[in-house]
Amino acid sequence: MLRFLLSRIGLLIPTFIGVTLIAFGFIRLIPGDPIEVLAGERGVSPERHAELMAQFGYDRPWWEQYAGFVGNVLQGDLGKSIVTKQPVLDEFLTLFPATIELALCAILFAIIIGLPVGVLAGVKRGSVFDHTVMGISLTGYSMPIFWWGLLLIIFFSGILQWTPVSGRISFLFFFEPVTGFMLIDSLLSGEKGAFKSAVSHLILPAVVLGTIPLAVIARQTRSAMLEVLSEDYVRTARAKGLPPSRVIGLHALRNALIPVVTVIGLQVGVLLAGAILTETIFAWPGVGKWLVDSIARRDYPSVQGGLLLIALVVMLVNLLVDLLYGVINPRIRHVR
């Protein structure tokens, strides 16, 4: 297991170097030199420009600059935002819990509905239920989620007036963040109605963000079930006279889950990409909206840092899924 772990971590190193190269190159690829980019629209005098070039080391050869950049990154220094003058890492960490909360609720929503629906569709292959589920999930898979979000706002916030349009919690409530997760913080605050308000703000964005993962999970679960149900050991279990619920729930589902776990892990990238759109629509104060805003106001150090940190998160979660996969499927561990 240790060898497996080390080999997986070893594979990450070239990818990490590549991501730092992209992030490093990003600011240098934008038209204009880094000082002009950092100065923004105000501009700087030629003397000040040369001074700053020397001060930040932009006059040195690029590999020295790159080494310095990686050194800073490894020490957690991702530079400062041009707009707020705050360290990029701090800004990211302040906003990241909101994105995690949203993404976790979205994937939970997707799993809680997608898994049983997929199993049932696989078991009742060819039935009306199966066709309906597959039709809906293909539609969900093809959904432009930014439009889906707007539709849900029109219906639930506009016509029914059940849910608020934007934000994480009503302005009536104010308390110091403890964990950064609004659901937990609102409970801890002890204020009446705070938790309810947080839930009502969260529900639509979570459904929107969870839609594509839900479709993917339902489809994958169904096809994994179909594959497993035709295996010999399932026939054996049936022949032994085990009740169908036991055959499906125990013998089939456990093995069908292996590819499903992989697919759930692969949704991290989908969730983070989707968070960019979902957070923009619902004015959810997470890293996705922050990145779009940063690009719009040309806050390039923030974009650079955000890019690096999000790629790192995706890489780490994929590593975690790989390891988890090794745990539930012992065959993988011994390959190579």
């Binding site: 070239p14 990818t15 991501v19 992209i22 934008i30 990238g269 983070l272 990409a273 990145l291 890019l307």
Partner: peptide, 18 residues
């Protein structure tokens, strides 16, 4: 692998920013 480790829309946004 590097391209795949950045979520699709984020990478597209970064390229557009450049």
């Amino acid at each position: 692998d590097v391209i795949l480790s950045v979520p699709s829309l984020l990478l597209a946004l970064v390229v557009v920013a450049i």
